[in-house]
């Protein structure tokens, strides 16, 4: 039986005095893909960046309410945010490989964790690159600088890097917005496969993409959750007029 791996309770987020999220209640079932859609500035990115506490690095950022991950509040003082981020991986909007070799990009997650065993790391590099269908393209050039790859390849490398340390949840912040359609197709295919082992939350501006890859969809508007439900339902029979207006392209 699927359970809620992640849940937000009345989540409010602020940058300084500006309130970005106005009380979000959302629950995520394990091994599902949830898409978060909404116009720019509606708080989608702030929302998923709160889940792995990467927003906590920004001065003036403040949060109220609870985020429950595996039955524990992530802001509990017993929770180490470094540990949390290993379990809640993230792929960003723009490909951001380290200016190091392809191999070192993936090995980094192991190095910082004190894992030095070469066989473990070699296997993880190969496995994760195979998962993202990059292995065949780069297997002979693992020592090549990652910045020499194309944008789409770089983004798949960032996926591989996040997958290599085997998180439970994968947060995707518009992962396809800076890459070409062919790479996008590969990444969508990848998301389908990853669903078996991971819980995925994807922020996207692309409605077709949301419809294609997700099981559940949440529609955000001006920091509020307007509608949440099965993707089929949201796209065929939205309950709220604003959702309907947005997905049919009348605003946003």
């Amino acid at each position: 039986m699927a359970k809620n791996i992640l849940e937000t309770q009345d989540l409010k987020a602020y940058f300084g005095n500006k309130q970005i999220l106005k009380g979000i209640n959302l629950a995520f079932l394990s091994n599902t893909v949830t898409a978060i859609i909404g116009p720019s500035g509606c708080g989608k990115s702030t929302f998923i960046r709160s889940i792995n506490r990467i927003n906590d690095l920004i001065p003036n950022f403040r949060i109220e309410g609870n985020i429950i991950f595996n039955d524990q509040d992530i802001h509990d003082k017993n929770v180490d945010e470094v540990d949390l981020r290993r379990k809640v991986g993230m792929v960003f909007q723009r490909p951001n490989p380290f200016p190091k070799s392809i191999y070192d990009n993936i090995a980094y997650g192991f190095n910082i964790y004190g894992i030095k065993d070469k066989y473990t790391i070699d296997a993880a590099v190969e496995n994760s690159l195979k998962k993202v269908a990059l292995w065949e393209e780069v297997k002979n050039n693992l020592s090549q600088n990652a910045l020499t790859l194309s944008g789409g390849q770089q983004q798949r490398l960032c996926f591989a890097r996040a997958l290599a340390i085997e998180p439970e949840v994968l947060l995707l912040d518009e992962p396809c917005s800076a890459i070409d359609p062919i790479s996008t197709a590969k990444i969508e295919e990848l998301i389908h496969q990853l669903k078996k082992n991971y819980t995925i939350i994807i922020v996207t501006h692309n409605m077709q993409q949301a419809a294609r890859v997700s099981d559940y969809t949440a529609f955000f508007l001006l920091g509020e959750l307007i509608e949440f439900g099965k993707t089929d339902g949201i796209f065929t029979a939205p309950k709220d007029k604003r959702t309907e207006a947005y997905i049919t392209g009348r605003f946003g």
Binding site: N52, I54, M90, F92, N96, Y108, I112, Y113, A162, I165
Partner: peptide, 18 residues
């Protein structure tokens, strides 16, 4: 150094010093 590099590192579970 672009902040995306810092974010990439933190998102993989690195500490500040790492």
């Amino acid at each position: 150094i672009p902040s995306s590099i810092r974010e990439a590192s933190y998102a993989l579970g690195a500490t500040k010093w790492q």
